[in-house]
């Protein structure tokens, strides 16, 4: 009995002494931090994806609190909603940004792009890219070893078993840009998500002349320039035998898709083309939803008849 008593007394007194010491130490070494940082951090998604360019969500919160305005500060994972909340909390104006999504610009599935060699090494695009152009004749295309999948903290990208190409999940992708940095071939790009997730882009990054490009891959951009001539908005540029559609200028008229001889330009989430009157309605809806500058809307309206 005595032993129990002594134990209790000694342990409790030890606890009390240590608590007092800890209290004073905590007082002494207290770091004064803006309480708003915690507040802002709580509003952020907490994924620490680094898409904002700061080390983790807390780093971003810190930057937001210290900044005079939210210009250039944007949490891609949380999107406008989060940024509005942050802006409200800090009493600043939010800078709205068009929602974006990662786009894989390669459509070289095995049936389009014949394999010409076998890569034998670690499952890493970066290592394979340091070794050679890849196991097909296209030295620009996707290697399919999944560095982007590895980089994604949101589980938003996976390699399709049939095509061997990465697929981005419409819902999960937050456009943090981790996959863009991870891809050694610079195939993935962040593009505006577009109304109703409708997007048009050149799904190829092959900079070879038409001949070799076409030989390596059936759906390669051969740099013929037809889309450039067709585009009514000057949204398409051709450089190094490769067309690129500027997503800021593109009005989703889909004319380029029709003229592309190799099918390298891809349209996503559009309704089927055949029932034409329906399509008109859909597009009209889009226009209403557009909150772009008035001038843009005018151009778009004028484009409408052309589209038909």
């Amino acid at each position: 009995m005595e032993i129990v008593l002594y134990t209790l007394i000694s342990l409790s007194s030890l606890g009390i002494i240590l608590a007092v010491i800890l209290f004073f130490v905590a007082q002494q070494f207290k770091v004064v931090e803006d309480p708003r940082i915690d507040e802002v951090e709580a509003l952020l998604p907490g994924a620490n994806c680094g898409g904002c360019g700061y080390p983790g969500c807390r780093g971003f919160a810190d930057a937001c609190v210290k900044a005079d305005s939210l210009d250039g500060l944007f949490c891609p994972a949380g999107g406008n909603e989060t940024m509005n909340a942050v802006a409200k909390a800090l009493g600043m104006a939010a800078v709205e940004k068009e929602p974006q999504i990662a786009v894989v610009r390669c459509a070289g599935a095995p049936e389009q792009r014949a394999k010409t060699s076998i890569y034998d090494g670690p499952q890493s695009c970066a290592i394979a890219a340091a070794l050679y152009g890849g196991d097909t004749d296209c030295p620009y295309g996707c290697l399919g070893l999944g560095d982007c999948v590895e980089a994604c903290t949101f589980d938003a990208i996976y390699i399709d078993e049939n095509t061997g190409l990465p697929v981005v999940s419409e819902e999960k992708c937050t456009a943090c840009g981790a996959c863009v940095t991870a891809c050694p071939k610079d195939i993935i790009e962040l593009r505006n998500k577009g109304k109703k997730s409708r997007r048009i882009y050149v799904s190829c990054v092959n900079k070879d002349k038409g001949g070799p490009a076409k030989k390596a891959c059936n759906v390669a951009c051969i740099g013929c320039g037809k889309c450039v001539k067709e585009c009514p908005f000057d949204a398409i540029t051709l450089e190094n035998f490769l067309a690129y559609i500027d997503y800021e200028k593109c009005k989703l008229c889909r004319k380029c898709v029709e003229v592309c001889p190799t099918g390298a330009i891809i349209e996503l989430n559009f309704p089927p083309r055949k029932p034409k009157p329906e399509k008109k309605e859909e597009n009209a809806d889009n226009e209403k939803a557009e909150n772009n500058a008035a001038a843009d809307t005018v151009i778009e309206n004028t484009s409408e008849p052309k589209n038909e």
Partner: peptide, 13 residues
Amino acid sequence: IPLLDYIRLGKAN
């Protein structure tokens, strides 16, 4: 283990 593959990657980066 292809150690050198990884080391080359590290050197390049």
